[in-house]
């Protein structure tokens, strides 16, 4: 594929992502009905308008898990000798960056949602706690990616770290949900927490949101991988230029010495 047609495809992908996210916003804010009716929240029969956060919260949580899954898969492909290529490492890095951003977004949205519904910004709910641990796990992974060394060294280090982190996710989830079932008093999870997604427009909006965020992820990860590849090329060129300069300087010095 030529560079031009590739950029056309990319722009199209970006446009689809923007349109889909825009459509999700319109659907979630104006089309779907409030949970249990407008004044449901006051009457205690449902969440009212507060539940509309669902249409952002669930897609961003899905995206976070998708992104970390892609990071693990790309790391595996780099570790496997027959598929070893540096672009897998770039994909792993780009995907992890998006994963961390969307994990952060999920936590922020969850807190905003939790305040009216649970009455507190942060409940020690199993999924919430797992997501928080996940956030720090991959923050560490991103920090490890930035420590320098050759691209191959970075790829080896970070691919193993990615798999270690990924293996931890089910253990964290398991231990945390066990821990919360022992400790959680039922008061936090009252009837208000239940949302009744029976309305077809609600289901459609949720699906649209998930699809929109997935397209957005594909677009962002593509652009980020390209940017990382360009950055890598730039670093290499700078290194070559610096070496050439040193060689030239070393070659020049003896002649100066002779002239003195």
């Amino acid at each position: 594929m030529s560079a031009q047609s590739r950029s056309v495809w990319q722009t199209a992908l970006g446009a689809v992502a923007a349109l889909a996210v825009g459509a999700t916003v319109v659907m979630a804010l104006f089309v779907v009905p409030a949970d249990g009716g407008r004044d449901a929240f006051v009457r205690g029969t449902g969440q009212g308008d507060a539940y509309r956060l669902l249409f952002l919260h669930v897609p961003s949580a899905w995206l976070a898990y998708l992104a970390f899954g892609v990071t693990a898969l790309a790391s595996l492909l780099w570790l496997f000798p027959r598929t070893r290529a540096l672009h897998w490492d770039l994909l792993a890095g780009a995907s992890a960056e998006l994963g961390v951003i969307f994990t952060g977004l999920t936590l922020a949205l969850g807190s905003l949602w939790g305040k009216p519904i649970w009455g507190q910004w942060w409940a020690w709910d199993a999924r919430l706690t797992t997501t928080a641990v996940l956030f720090f796990l991959y923050l560490g992974y991103l920090a490890l990616r930035r420590v320098g060394g050759s691209p191959e060294q970075r790829a080896m280090r970070s691919s193993i770290a990615a798999l270690i982190a990924f293996a931890d996710v089910p253990i964290v989830h398991f231990s945390v949900s066990w821990w919360t079932t022992l400790h959680q008093d039922g008061s936090v999870f009252n009837a208000k927490m239940q949302i009744h997604i029976q309305d077809t427009s609600m289901q459609a909006t949720l699906l649209l949101g998930v699809a929109a965020f997935t397209v957005l992820y594909a677009y962002l990860v593509l652009r980020r991988v390209q940017l990382l590849a360009v950055e890598e090329g730039l670093a290499e060129r700078e290194l070559e230029a610096a070496i050439a300069q040193r060689v030239a300087a070393a070659g020049a010095r003896p002649r100066e010495a002779v002239s003195i």
Binding site: V133, F136, L137, L139, G140, Y141, A143, L144, V147, G148, R157, I160, A161, I164, A165, D168, I171, V172, F174, S175, V176, W179
Partner: peptide
């Protein structure tokens, strides 16, 4: 495992806690 990952890096002292502590969260709980 994380020690050898970070060994020889200038940022070793600050990186090791950030890597080890989240992974060992289930150990702390259990």
């Amino acid at each position: 495992v994380y020690g050898i990952l970070a060994a020889g890096l200038r940022v070793r002292e600050t990186l090791v806690p950030l890597l080890v502590l989240p992974v060992t969260a289930p150990v702390l709980l259990g």
